[in-house]
Amino acid sequence: MIIGLGSDLCNIERIQNSLDRFGERFEQRVFTETERAKGNRRPFTKAGTLAKRFAAKEAFSKAVGTGFKAGVFMKDIGVVNAPSGKPTLALTGGAKARLDAMTPAGHVAHIHITLTDDHPWAQAFVVIEALPAPATGS
């Protein structure tokens, strides 16, 4: 069953302006080490790379129904990629606690995410699905 849905549209120029104005301070406050490393590996498209991740954080905060309050912080939500390149979210702190709290007993949360950008826009969609927990046998 779907227990959360969120989307966000982010202006890449807004992220570029924050990078130009605040630099490392902005990056440290908003992005995980993995996200910053990914952006740094893409110097010509760094703002777009980070804008997609910014949008993903916003979309997740909407999917869990809190926005960035109730202990959910941007750095608690990190976009990571599987070896195939498929994105997903790594959650810590308040973001993980909120997801755990909204997941029904006997279920496991599975996060689906899609990211895209076409300058000047970056977009993310997050769907949180609760799947029955696997049966444990002896």
Rank of each mutant, 00 (worst) to 15 (best):
F68N: 05
N17H: 07
L91T: 00
K46N: 01
S18Y: 03
L91D: 07
T66N: 11
K57Q: 06
K62R: 14
G4D: 11
K57N: 05
E27L: 13
C10P: 06
V64G: 00
S61Q: 09
R29Y: 14
L91E: 00
A105I: 14
P43V: 11
E33L: 14
T103I: 14
K69Q: 15
R42A: 08
G71L: 10
I15G: 03
G71D: 02
G78E: 02
F22A: 13
L5V: 13
G78R: 01
P87F: 03
F68S: 01
G4K: 03
V64M: 02
G48L: 03
K69T: 09
A51D: 01
L89E: 00
S18Q: 03
R53E: 00
T49I: 14
R14N: 11
E33S: 15
K86C: 13
N40C: 15
P87W: 01
K69S: 10
H107E: 15
T88K: 05
R14V: 09
R36K: 15
K75S: 05
I12V: 04
A59P: 10
M102C: 06
P83S: 03
N40V: 14
S61R: 04
V79E: 00
F44G: 10
F54G: 05
A47L: 01
L5R: 13
R21S: 01
T103Y: 12
A101R: 13
T34Q: 15
R98V: 08
Q28K: 12
F44L: 09
R21M: 13
I12A: 04
K46Y: 04
A51E: 06
D8N: 09
F73R: 09
T103H: 14
L5N: 06
S61N: 11
R42C: 08
G65K: 06
K96C: 11
G4P: 04
R98M: 08
R36F: 13
A59G: 07
F26P: 01
F31L: 14
E13G: 03
K52H: 12
I77D: 00
L19H: 07
L91N: 00
D76F: 03
A82I: 12
A56N: 06
I3D: 03
K57F: 05
T45L: 09
R14Q: 08
D76M: 06
N81D: 14
V64H: 02
E35C: 05
F31V: 10
T32M: 14
V80F: 10
E35W: 09
E58G: 07
G78W: 01
G94H: 07
I77Y: 00
A47H: 01
K57A: 08
M74D: 03
E13V: 14
K38R: 15
M74Y: 06
V79M: 05
A105M: 08
R98K: 15
G39C: 05
G94P: 02
A97L: 10
G93Q: 04
A95I: 03
I15V: 06
F54Q: 00
R42T: 13
V72W: 10
E33M: 13
R36A: 12
V80T: 09
E24I: 14
T32N: 10
A101Y: 08
K46L: 12
G94D: 05
N40M: 11
G48T: 01
F26Y: 04
M102Y: 11
A82D: 06
I3H: 12
